[in-house]
Design a protein around this nucleic acid. Structure first.
Lengths: 332, 332
DNA sequence: CTATTCGATGCAACCGGTTGCATGTCAAGC
DNA sequence: GCTTGACATGCAACCGGTTGCATCGAATAG
């Protein structure tokens, strides 16, 4: 059995030992300036000797300050998110906050459930790449501090990684290499990043006088990338920009499996630079800003928390093309 | 401003509306069988109409059932952990539990802080690849339900990924290819996995009549792997087994940078199979069981929670060699 | 020397639930 | 017809803190 008495000394026990009232102990921790220095020391010494740690849950109940925030992502295992999570964590540690991590599994219903379940225990939330309908997000944002990453909803503080700029560069790069038709391998339908990237491809194609086709992949996953290779080849394109690196990596494998040499016969570009130079050939891709996004979202949230009011902030992070070796002159 | 009154109706408000006592509302949610069916309906209707949701924090304070567990890892961004986290999350969702994620940044002090900070808000903890001294772990385990992953401490429930078996196979594989000296690129000194793998290398070397050398890498990271390449080459070995895939990947890059062809002139084997076939050449490695470890650890923790007592469980997951293309006959 | 002020601490209510026990009601049993 | 018990609900204390207000002693002002 885990001893109830021993496991966590309470404020009352410390008070008894120090010979003061509970409120004095409380103040020794939260507002030591209100107390006599000696008293504070005596309380602290008592606390130390019993291994007392203030119970954040109890504190939260009366103050409403939970010292926790929630971060909800579609898929922890998608390499785009861990650096983001890590960056957020780092900031949180500094602020002595704790992190609830939610994994929605790319499922809006699950995401909605998580938000509800977590709502009562956090001061604020960050929704990364939310798959929720705009209306649900607005509802949640009205009830509590909320910051979005990669979702552009007016009136709600948000951090956006503008892959549009990088995708534009990618299209220019491909045009410069003589490609006439480019396929965009799309991601999740309700992903803002996906819409943004698709839009950037279209716009750049128009501007540069290229043809473009959209080939949908079921999910942003390696498997989906492999599976989509046939459709990409059928589309008549000689180059593809994939929704993300993971999909691009799958596509690379799918092309290799069909005996199509990259970049000799086909060029491939990813997004998010999460695989680094780990693929073969090393993947040309659009740079990754996810750690910055995590950090920025957290700062925004803390600002909202401090001011207790919503400011309509739209923080945009630019991206650029990182040329490696999956792109080359178009086959003739 | 976020309206305090509107944001979350309390049990008292529901009680007033339904014309019953607070305790009746409470029971309507937790033990409806105790109440008259009509009453339950009336309460539920009132709750629904106000959008009442029980406050988990307040509930936890009186019941001690937090409905939260903490998972602490050394580095979220290390690809070994996300699948583990994801697997744990999936189980937790089923059980309607929430997950606190802690990132210790490979720092025992930070890990200790996190444990303390989280202790008051969770029912139990999972420490994955803990870098804490055994004595600290024992102290924490005595105070609350605790399960370890990849740390072998008697008396504390633990899930171990036995990379020893896979490493043994790796050594046999190398011996079969004619390698006489094998380098082990070690990981963090206080990592159980590292000790285990180093031990397995030594034992297999003795058994197979091979020479082995240990070359330490600062951290399990790509950069450290790159940096260690020179030392590995100087060691006289013709093959290396790295602490993990990430280190191995760096080593691959370091070797390539020095003009050493893999596997022609040097063979490399990783551990944990987190990179899949993404490296070039595709990395020969020891299989990854981290999702299973996450799931198993969670089951163990739930068992401990249910029984409120510690059982000395030692759950071992076997691993195997996955041969890809970074290993070949030893150079002559 | 007394009135005023201020700093340090205690008291008690409160945060939003849970739960053991008391109370009240109604039907069945004798 | 009165006792007994079961069932439904209310009462109030409790979980572990926080905080506005009261109190008290000492220092300062007059």
């Amino acid at each position: 059995m885990y001893p109830r008495s021993r496991s966590t000394p309470t404020i009352s026990q410390v008070a008894t030992l120090a010979g003061v009232n509970r409120s004095t102990v409380s103040r020794a921790f939260t507002r030591p300036d209100m107390l006599n220095t000696e008293t504070v020391e005596r309380v602290m010494e008592a606390a130390r000797s019993m291994g007392y740690v203030p119970n954040h849950t109890a504190r939260a109940l009366s103050t409403g300050r939970y010292g926790n925030i929630a971060l909800i992502v579609p898929d922890v295992a998608n390499p785009f998110f861990p650096p983001l999570i890590r960056a957020a964590q780092k900031e949180l540690d500094r602020l002595d906050f704790c992190l609830f991590l939610g994994n929605s599994d790319e499922d809006p219903r699950q995401e909605d459930r998580l938000v509800g379940r977590l709502a009562g225990q956090v001061e604020g939330m960050i929704l990364a790449s939310s798959r929720l309908p705009e209306e649900r997000i607005r509802t949640h944002a009205a009830a509590r501090p909320l910051v979005l990453i990669n979702r552009d909803i007016e009136g709600i503080p948000r951090v956006l990684i503008d892959s549009g700029s990088g995708v534009g560069e990618a299209m220019e790069h491909l045009a410069g290499l003589g490609h006439a038709t480019v396929a965009y391998v799309s991601g999740p339908a309700n992903s803002w990043s996906n819409r943004q990237r698709r839009g950037a491809v279209r716009k750049a194609a128009d501007r540069l006088g290229l043809k473009h086709v959209v080939v949908p992949a079921a999910l942003p996953s390696y498997e989906a990338g492999v599976a989509v290779a046939a459709a990409v080849l059928r589309s008549g394109a000689t180059a593809a920009i994939a929704f993300d690196d993971v999909t691009a990596h799958g596509l690379l494998a799918g092309l290799a499996g069909r005996g199509v040499p990259v970049p000799g016969a086909f060029s491939v570009i990813g997004c998010d630079d999460v695989l680094g130079a780990a693929t073969y050939p090393p993947l040309t891709t659009v740079s990754n800003r996810s750690p910055q996004a995590g950090k920025a979202a957290l700062s925004l949230l803390m600002e909202v928390l401090a001011s207790r009011s919503i400011r309509d902030v739209r923080y945009v992070l630019e991206t650029h093309l990182v040329v490696r070796r999956t792109t080359a002159t178009a086959p003739t």
